[in-house]
């Protein structure tokens, strides 16, 4: 889907021009560089500054990993990185939402909020996928409740009892409401 509101990029600040502008003569700027201090580097020692920043991405890149699965990439880079993970490519409804999200930059809620939504939908898809493959999900085991039984039994029993009581109350309430509705129409 094309974003019609997207402004045309300003050609004067295209990537190729960045270093040309930076390296051009600054003779017309009085005092250019007069207070530069290489020791004023709050990133040291985490970063060992060597000027590579100013070469930008003009380095010998590793060979490209073959792109044999669908890889969504950030709009803030021109293509995929030289290596990438191939776990769980986008699929189904969640995949459609993820593809939509990747039309927007990392700087926007339109990127992240749909991804969170896709994650939640993906959970339901996971249940369906399990059942389609003959796997009955076991939420008690998957939530690690055997450990809860071992280390926090009283709280677990209380939680289960409260859950059962609330469910029973809801069932009884709905049952009574159903009976009243039937009486009205009988």
């Amino acid at each position: 889907m094309e974003n019609k509101n997207k402004p045309e990029p300003d050609k004067t600040i295209e990537a190729d021009n960045d270093r040309k502008i930076a390296n051009s003569s600054k003779d017309h700027i009085p005092g250019w560089g007069i207070d530069a201090n290489p020791e004023n580097d709050p990133t040291y020692p985490m970063k060992h500054w060597n000027g590579a920043d100013h070469q930008r991405f003009n380095y010998e890149k590793p060979v490209q990993q073959p792109i044999d699965v669908e890889i969504l990439h950030s709009t803030e880079r021109p293509g995929v990185s030289r290596v990438f993970g191939t776990s769980t490519p986008p699929s189904g409804l969640s995949g459609m939402i993820r593809r939509f999200a990747f039309k927007y930059s990392e700087s926007t809620y339109l990127h992240w909020v749909p991804l969170v939504l896709a994650d939640r939908i993906n959970v339901v898809e996971g249940y369906i996928d399990d059942l389609a493959h003959g796997i009955i999900p076991n939420p008690f085991a998957e939530r690690g409740w055997p450990a809860e039984w071992k280390y926090n039994r009283k709280s677990l029993v209380t939680k289960v009892a409260v859950g059962v009581a609330i469910t029973a109350a809801v069932v009884v309430f709905l049952n009574q409401k159903n009976k009243k509705t039937k009486k009205l129409f009988s």
Binding site: K47, Y59, K61, I71, L72, S74, S81, F84
Partner: peptide
């Protein structure tokens, strides 16, 4: 080999994560 790795910012590599530029793989 990317500028960030060359400057020992190995947690900020630019060639390991296509999905986000803010974090390395």
């Amino acid at each position: 080999v990317c500028p960030f790795c060359q400057q020992q910012l190995f947690g900020n590599c630019h060639e390991s994560n296509p999905q986000a530029t803010a974090v390395a793989g």
